[in-house]
């Protein structure tokens, strides 16, 4: 690089590039705002009481397109089941990585594999679920869907838990140990409470991620209106996909309302996480 304070060409180029950088940022934000505004304006009028109260009605059966009740309940059940599996495993792994042998022959590959698993396309996880829990059982079912979602949540929870536990000062642990507490007692009564807020945010992010997944559910739960877990199972995202790619106008607008609900949920969770972690810093 040559010093060029007096080079007006360089100065002009610099101003141009600055403007382009500002423009890039504006363009990204404008796209986001455009997408959100369209979702609100298209989806909001379908977001009435029926949306939450009625089950989907097949097109042509009725003037009303029905609602998304079964789909919303289905997603809530799937995410709850997935959390029951993923939160313990994710938390324990995070504790292992942060509190036990942090550089052992086990911890290093586990940390590495967590990062790699977080980048595996979710559709591949859905196909694993199909092979392990759909084909042997002979039917699409809720358990396979929940397991696939848990598979996606575990690496996120494990890594955020590890990072958050590491932020707890070592002096807390030393003080607890010095007072005679064992390792388990120190972890559960001192370290985890100190990091509870931020660990929870990691779990929230994983839940938000799971609630928005579609591809893995297409291969594991498919779609139905019945909440029998041993049969094809409803979910908000697959229902939205089904409606969006169909030809029925009223159903398409239900899909928009579904996206509005989903995106609002994710916005609220992200905002909560942001505020919680900012208060900690």
């Amino acid at each position: 690089m040559t010093p060029s304070t007096h080079n007006s060409l360089a100065a002009a180029k610099s101003r141009l590039m600055f403007a382009l950088c500002a423009l890039s940022t504006t363009a990204i934000l404008a796209l986001l705002i455009l997408a959100i505004a369209t979702t609100i304006s298209t989806g909001a009028h379908s977001l009435n009481r029926d949306f939450f109260r009625l089950n989907p009605i097949p097109p042509g059966m009725d003037h009303s397109p029905g609602g998304m009740r079964s789909a919303l309940l289905g997603t809530a059940i799937l995410v709850t089941l997935a959390s029951l599996l993923a939160i313990p495993i994710g938390l324990l792994t995070g504790i292992y990585l942060a509190e036990y042998d942090t550089t052992s022959h086990l911890a290093t590959p586990v940390r590495f594999v967590c990062d790699v698993l977080a980048g595996v396309p979710s559709i591949v996880v859905g196909i694993l679920g199909y092979e392990l829990l759909v084909r042997p059982l002979g039917s699409f079912n809720a358990w396979a869907g929940a397991a696939a979602l848990a598979f996606l949540m575990i690496p996120i929870i494990a890594r955020t838990t590890e990072e958050m536990l590491r932020l707890v000062p070592a002096s807390y642990r030393e003080a607890s140990m010095a007072l005679g507490a064992g390792k388990a007692k120190t972890i559960f009564q001192i370290v985890i409470p100190a990091a509870a807020g931020t660990v929870t945010t990691g779990i929230m992010l994983a839940i938000a991620r799971a609630a928005g997944e579609t591809a893995p559910l297409l291969f594991t739960t498919l779609l139905s209106q019945s909440l029998n877990p041993n049969q094809p199972f409803p979910s908000l995202t697959v229902q939205i996909f089904d409606y969006a790619t169909g030809a029925s106008r009223p159903q398409q607008s239900l899909a928009w309302a579904g996206i509005l609900v989903l995106v609002s949920l994710i916005f609220v969770m992200n905002l909560g996480v942001r505020l919680a972690t900012r208060a900690r810093r």
Partner: peptide, 28 residues
């Protein structure tokens, strides 16, 4: 003791992560 139980549980959970990747590769 609680300490040992926790040590075993966390190690088991961490090993699960490795199994998950192995399952993906082997089953597919």
């Amino acid at each position: 003791t609680p300490d040992r139980i926790l040590a075993i549980l966390t190690k088991a959970a961490a090993s699960t992560i490795l199994l998950m990747l192995a399952a993906l590769l082997i089953i597919l």
